[in-house]
Amino acid sequence: MTYQKIAPHETFEIHEILTFKNVCATKASAMVRFVKDEELRTLLEEDFTTGQEHIKELQELLRSSQLLERTDELTH
């Protein structure tokens, strides 16, 4: 498959997942402090680390968005 740009509507969806993942990671890191149960704590911590990986991947995807080109055209 050749390199392809992400369409605008895909960009919105990915952005929405990204915001959701951001909230999840923030909440997980905040909640971990209050949890006494060991298993629940490890689950939350695992989710936090995988969430961060996902955030990086989503950011990478967003970088190949057509919308970025569009804004460049508009500003120049």
Binding site: Q4, A7, E10, E13, I14, E57, L58, L61
Partner: peptide, 15 residues
């Protein structure tokens, strides 16, 4: 829901 809106194969596998 997002998966039903995505066509790009790379983004698809990711999601």
């Amino acid at each position: 829901v997002a998966l039903t809106e995505i066509a790009d194969p790379e983004a698809r596998t990711e999601v």
